[in-house]
Each structure stands twice: as structure tokens, then as C-alpha cells.
Write a protein that binds this DNA or RNA. Sequence first.
DNA 1: TGGTTTACATACATTCATGTTTGTTTATAA
DNA 2: TTATAAACAAACATGAATGTATGTAAACCA
Lengths: 205, 205
Amino acid sequence: MVRKTKEDAEITRQLIIDAARETFFVRGVSRTPMETIAEKAGVTRGAIYWHFRNKTDLFQAMREQVFLPLIDRMDGILLVESEDDPLSCIERFFTSTIQVLNDDLKTRRTYEVMMTRCEYVDEFAEVLRLILSNCSGFVEKIELVYKRAQDKGQLRPGDDPAALAMDSHFFFTGLLHMWVKDVEDGNIRKNAIQAIKAHIALRRR
Amino acid sequence: MVRKTKEDAEITRQLIIDAARETFFVRGVSRTPMETIAEKAGVTRGAIYWHFRNKTDLFQAMREQVFLPLIDRMDGILLVESEDDPLSCIERFFTSTIQVLNDDLKTRRTYEVMMTRCEYVDEFAEVLRLILSNCSGFVEKIELVYKRAQDKGQLRPGDDPAALAMDSHFFFTGLLHMWVKDVEDGNIRKNAIQAIKAHIALRRR
DNA sequence: TGGTTTACATACATTCATGTTTGTTTATAA
DNA sequence: TTATAAACAAACATGAATGTATGTAAACCA
């Protein structure tokens, strides 16, 4: 291989990210040598070090590729003012996230890598902080939707939107973790949608 | 140092496990060289390889030391037949688990290592499976308690014990994850007990 | 059309971690 | 009381993995 056009270079970059994701998944991030990623991508380490500063940089690129669109999607579903069934809004968001995980291999693998194949120390500790702050935003948005649901009289009397939001956040965090880790049995993956329905039903008046 | 008695050897073994836990926490499991653990424990690698086959073996020892008693505690709290307030039973179990995490550094560090400083591949993949199967048992036990609560008329009419159990499982899994990861802000750690209360209140008639 | 830069491949230097083997001392059991 | 084995320390051998430096050919621009 030799010199390519700008578009070719972009393809190479993408090949490297794809190879990294798969190899991270199989061997874990820290146990994955750059050499292995390079082989899988059909390039040499030189190519990787041209496109990325180091493994952390490559990891970040892989991560952002699925997380940025996911955050956009969240806002798209949750923050629609013109909605007269806010509770279903939340349900739809949860359900569709699971759907994406189920249908899109890239997204699923990225989640799998981030949740079970990565050690959050040193340079990676910052990633954890990023995710955490992201969660805060998530809770706030959900709380807003629950408030709208309350205004529309959807909630049971006495239920506090803030408490419901926290509860839903923990629920969904747990569901995601178990869903991703449930590779063998498949029991959770089968019942995830139903569990979401039940979770929301618990709130409905 | 030279030859010790059986009790001295046991002390050394414990020193190694303690050192491993702390070092795993600081540097991550795979980025922790045996040498570093040895230094921290005040021994040489020779001592570690005498007590443990390799790093995985050492990791397992660390893990079992806090997990086995924790499972016993779960049974102890959840499976008391002579209880006329099953819902509070579950609440107490959740609350006390958080309390243990909060008060006992060894347990907390072990959880931190297992949730954010370990890559579950190869030999470690089995650990994940172990945890998963453990969770199944957990859900079953909770479901049993919810059934007892239903019999005593504690639940809202129409609520299904199995669905409630799943929901609680996800809730607690998520709470644990966020609690452990919430090192900087401390917001979740402050409100955990309250969130548990709210979660159970959502079920009470 | 020739120089410059891009997009890599190749080669190099260095560091580090693991597992094993051998050596040493002492508790312990026969 | 002495041989054995436990509980390590120290030395050895080996194999990676990383980052950088250098080489190179083609695209691109003047």
C-alpha cells in the first residue's frame, strides 16, 4: 500500500476503528496490542499511529462515534414539547435504545467494550467522568418529562417527578448493564421490552 | 525474611490480597505488575507465586473474600419467613448493602475494582458468568419476598411480583453501579438511601 | 513538472512483565 | 536429631508491546 487520497485515508481510519472495536471486544482494551488491530485492519502500526496518538485516542474515537448520535437521539425523543403522552415518551426512549443495541452491531459492541472490557484508570478515568456527567443531564431531562406527565395528570397522586426520574435512571442503567452482559442466557434480552413497559406502567395513574 | 509458621504464612497471604486490591484500584488489574503488588505487601514476587498461581488466581481470592459473606447476608435478610413486613425486608437488604459499601473499605474497593478496573475476557470471562448466575438467584429470592408481600396485602392491586422483582433488580444493579462510580460528585452516595425508600414506597399500597 | 506534503510501511530502541528455576532458612514431624 | 518440606527471596530466561525515527511513493498544488 502506498499513498492514498483523502477519501481513502478516511476509509483506512474507519477500518482501524472497526478493527479496534472488534479486537477490544475479543481481547479487552489493555490486552489488545496495536499490532493485532493493525493486522485485523490490514495495515501496519504505522498507519494507526498516523491517525491516532495512542490507544486511548483510538478508544475515544470509537466511543464518540456511537455516543454522540445517541445523545442527539435522546434529546430528539425526550424533549418534544408537543407531546400529550409524556410517559410514553420515556418508554419509547428506553425501548428504542434497546432496539438500537439489538440491531446495530457497532453500537452494541461499543457498549460491550465500555462496560466489560475496559479499565477506567489513568487516561481512561476521564472517560468515566464524562459518562457520569452525561448521566446527570439524562436524569434532569427525564425529570422534566415526568413533570410534564404530572401536569397532564398521568402520574399517581403523591409521586414525585424527581424521585421517579432517579428511579428510572437506576432502572435503565441496571437494565443496560444486564442486557449487555447477558450474552449466554439471553433471558434478559428477551424480556427487556416487557420490563420497560412494566416499569412505566408502575407510574401510570 | 525467611521461613515462617503456618499463621505467619496466612498473614502474608492476606497482606498480598490487601496489596493487590489497593493496587488494582489505583492502576487497574491488567496494568498492575506483580512486582508492584509485592512491593506494597513488603514481599517479593516469589511470595506471591508461592501463594497464588497467577494474577487471575489472586483476583479470585480477593473477590471471594467479600462476595461469599455478602451472599450469606442476602439470604439472612431476605429469607426470614417470620416477617410480617416483607417490603421492608427488601428495603433493609438494599439499604444495608449500601451501608456495607459505605463503611467497609475492603468491600467498597473490591466492588470498585470489579466494576471499573477489570476487563472480563479470557480467564476473567468466567467471573462475569458467575456474577450473572448469582443475579438470577437474587431475582428469584426477591420475587419470593414480593409474593409474600402480596399475600399480606402490601402491594398495589394489579402489580405482579415477578415484574416487581425484575424492576427492583435493575434498579439495584443500576444504583450499585452509579454509587460505586460516583466518587467525585458524591450526589448519588448522599441520596442512595432516600432513593431506595422511594423505590419501595412506589410499591406499597 | 517539480517540490511539498500526505499517508502510510519499515526499522529501531527501549522498557517492562511474566513465569520458572534455583537457593536459603527454618518449622516440624518422625 | 535429623530429614523433609514449607515459605519464601533472588536470579534467570524470554517475550512482548510501545513509541519514535526513518524511508517512500503517490497525490496535489504552484
